[in-house]
């Protein structure tokens, strides 16, 4: 698996195909490590750019857990600094707060805002009215993307953030989540929500936005990845990298894998080697070890089948190693280095 670009020289990867992207959307089936990858990507970007906004939209507090910081609120909060002066700012986008902020921004609602809340209209808009919730969530990210360092949304001041990483909803919902335009088009046929949805869609379908998909080499996540790539492409979004997470180092060469699969690993010589190295060898121990090797070989077969499916998409594939100790604030930095080395970040 060769990373993002094939023309790597002296450890300096060429720019990835999404070199112009500012907004990186990270999706994947539940349990594949979406949040970890989004966090690692944010670190990798921060090392090269300066300020990165890392956002989540499902209130899971995955970012605060990954970086071991207090739960994120609806205010943009510094999360960590990165060597080289980069900084990651975290935000948990919450639809109610986004709506109230939006109303305040565009309508200067004082009393009406409170009344809307009191009458349950805010609840309605954010939980029941279909599509509106998603427009609000992405709308907040759209706003952050346009914001300048002076806090305004136009003018010559440099952008407030150099990159934005979104820990997005899982593959099962990502197509719908990003299709805010068609979601609300039938409902809000005019008005500010409608035009907001159109501007958002322009951003999401432009070269500024790329959607990365995280998967494991297992059947269900790979299946969902393939379906997602097709759906995203058909809807006009740009799939970026497939990030294959938790990949284990090969322990055997192909010949040994064949033997392991068929239970032909040579027992006497393995027993002899073990005994020579001072292990108390019992038949049950050797049988057990060979059993484990057989399971492993079958697993490797399955993983190779799945990898071939992913490769058939033609998208760049980035692999992240399985970390024996699980993921913590230190490990996520190691993963960021791998992402940089594999050319996912310029």
């Amino acid at each position: 698996m060769g990373g993002v670009t094939s023309t790597q020289e002296e450890g300096v990867p060429a720019a990835p195909p999404w070199g112009a992207a500012r907004l990186h959307i990270v999706t994947g089936k539940g349990g594949t490590g979406k949040t970890t990858v989004a966090s690692a990507l944010a670190i990798g970007l921060a090392a090269h750019h300066h300020r990165v906004l890392l956002t989540e939209v499902e209130g899971r507090q995955g970012i605060s857990q990954t970086f071991d910081v207090p739960p994120l609120g609806t205010e943009e909060t510094p999360v960590t600094r990165v060597a080289g002066g980069g900084e990651i700012v975290g935000l948990s986008v919450e639809p109610k707060a986004a709506l109230l902020e939006y109303l305040q921004l565009f309508y200067k609602l004082g009393r009406a805002g409170r009344l809307l809340e009191k009458f349950g209209a805010i609840d309605f808009a954010t939980t029941i009215a279909p599509g509106v919730r998603d427009v609000l969530l992405i709308g907040k990210i759209y706003e952050a993307n346009r914001r300048r360092q002076d806090g305004r949304h136009k003018g010559d001041s440099p952008p407030a953030y150099d990159s934005i990483v979104l820990d997005a909803p899982p593959t099962g919902r990502i197509g719908r989540f990003l299709s805010v335009n068609s979601e609300v088009a039938d409902l809000a046929r005019m008005g500010p929500i409608h035009s907001q949805a159109e501007s958002i869609t322009r951003l999401l379908q432009s070269g500024q936005t790329v959607v990365h998909i995280v998967t494991l080499l297992e059947e269900m996540p790979v299946q969902e990845t393939l379906e997602s790539i097709e759906e995203l492409g058909a809807k006009g979004f740009h799939p970026g990298a497939i990030v294959v997470n938790m990949v284990r180092e090969p322990l055997f060469d192909d010949a040994a894998l064949d033997q392991a699969r068929e239970g032909r690993l040579h027992k006497p010589s393995i027993s002899a080697q073990l005994a020579e190295a001072g292990v108390k060898v019992t038949p049950a121990l050797v049988e057990g070890l060979l059993d484990e090797a057989r399971d492993h070989a079958l697993r490797v077969d399955l993983e190779r089948e799945q990898l071939a499916l992913l490769e058939s998409t033609g998208l760049p594939i980035v692999t992240l190693p399985a970390l024996p100790g699980g993921v913590d604030a230190v490990a996520v930095r190691e993963l960021a280095e791998v992402l940089v080395a594999e050319g996912m970040v310029r």
Partner: peptide, 15 residues
Amino acid sequence: QLVSSTMTKILGGQM
């Protein structure tokens, strides 16, 4: 009326 007109403003009358 305030709520109603605000909702209309935000969501559009049709919705």
